[in-house]
Design a protein around this nucleic acid. Structure first.
Lengths: 218, 218
DNA sequence: TTGTTATTCAATAGAATACTTGATAACTTG
DNA sequence: CAAGTTATCAAGTATTCTATTGAATAACAA
């Protein structure tokens, strides 16, 4: 039987990847990248940290194989590394949410009171029937980087000015970054306040995409 | 919109869970627990670390919600926390194996040359047809804690003395802890050396169990 | 009670990590 | 080529993590 040494190397390599998920700052970057690829400066700003720091975290993520980097002229574009990376990140997030009351509480504080929710499968069926208007309320760049087929982009900031763009004979479904993203909640509240029938997709774009990539995900 | 504070808390809570996967020693404990529940002392010994150290790591895993602990008289029995924990651990392990050439190399050093492999689905079909003898070559306690239905327990150490227990009109399939466990490889080599037709299941008990728990896993 | 066994706690030294600031490198554009 | 962007590197300090040691606790048996 081989030495325990090789086995040790194995665990060390996996831990290297695990370390990538051990810092809130890195997770925040990963969360942003799950929506759309970005440059270092944008990532730094949107996650509220210094550029140098963000760069270091991004390198750590890159070393762990969780993100890819491509040079685009003068900027470097980071993107999430692929299905595996996305799957781990979502699994970790969900497990944490399921396990810790603290997360629940924080989420509730952040998201506000509940609004009506619709599941992925139901949405798919109703889209096929032409039964609903689907609105992507994330920032326009994230929509541009990828979105649910058939969705219309109305960033949450512009929603109240662009209400008439939504046909009023159909129910509205809003979605955003995921279950812990406040945009869709907010959108549904605004729509309800205007007397519109609206609900939000239970999760967001990354989950939808992952489900499309590997149809067996629940 | 709520403060970024609650959002921050969210990432911190997830990172807490991520930290659980950031140390090779902890991962080794988790890997053992993925096979069967155990007491602290056994875990310490089987992973080659001091009892106090193992205890601390186990507490970290417990805090992160990855393991459960139950008192049983004078000993405390740790077990992997559930489907979620198992899924994350396997996802991480696979992603690491897929991404890093180093892991490949270490695995190859450890496992030796390739032997014939059979997939989960194929095994399931052939078991249903009564076409193969399935042998669990892990230690007896791990078999006792859970095994593939229809498998016979022959720990790898005893295999050469118990060859006649295997009917020689059927092919043998061996399985063990998972793709990086050497037992099944070794078993197939031994069987081949005796002129038996044998192959190993491509992964192991935890993967089989997870697939049963949530049938959609690939 | 007094051992015995199994586990955890507390203290500590050394290693690794996080974030800051200021300098440097790679590439574009004028 | 010089000036301007964008990203990384390097060094320093504060913090956190890891593994070790030896002592403390909890459950049980004699």
């Amino acid at each position: 039987m081989a030495s325990g040494d090789a086995k040790q190397t194995l665990f060390e390599a996996i831990a290297l990847m695990g370390k990538a998920f051990a810092s809130p700052r890195r997770l925040e970057l990963l969360d942003l990248l799950a929506q759309a690829p970005r440059g270092v400066e944008e990532l730094a700003e949107q996650s509220g940290q210094s550029v140098a720091n963000a760069s270091q975290h991004l390198q750590a993520l890159h070393l762990a194989g969780m993100v890819t980097r491509t040079r685009e002229g003068t900027r470097i574009r980071y993107a999430i590394a692929g299905e595996e990376a996305l799957r781990i990140w979502l699994a970790l997030r969900d497990a944490s949410a399921a396990g810790l009351a603290e997360v629940e509480r924080a989420a509730h504080d952040y998201l506000g009171e509940d609004v009506e929710t619709i599941g992925r499968e139901e949405l798919r069926e109703r889209l096929a029937r032409g039964d609903v208007v689907l609105v992507d309320v994330r920032p326009a760049e994230e929509y541009a980087a990828g979105h649910i087929e058939g969705a219309k982009s109305i960033p949450i900031d512009e929603l109240d000015q662009r209400l008439e763009e939504l046909p009023d004979d159909r129910e509205v479904v809003a979605y955003c970054r995921g279950p812990f993203c406040a945009y869709a909640h907010e959108a549904v509240r605004q729509l309800n306040a205007r007397g519109r029938n609206a609900s939000r997709l239970e999760d967001g774009w990354p989950e939808w995409r992952l489900a499309d990539l590997s149809p067996q995900t629940p």
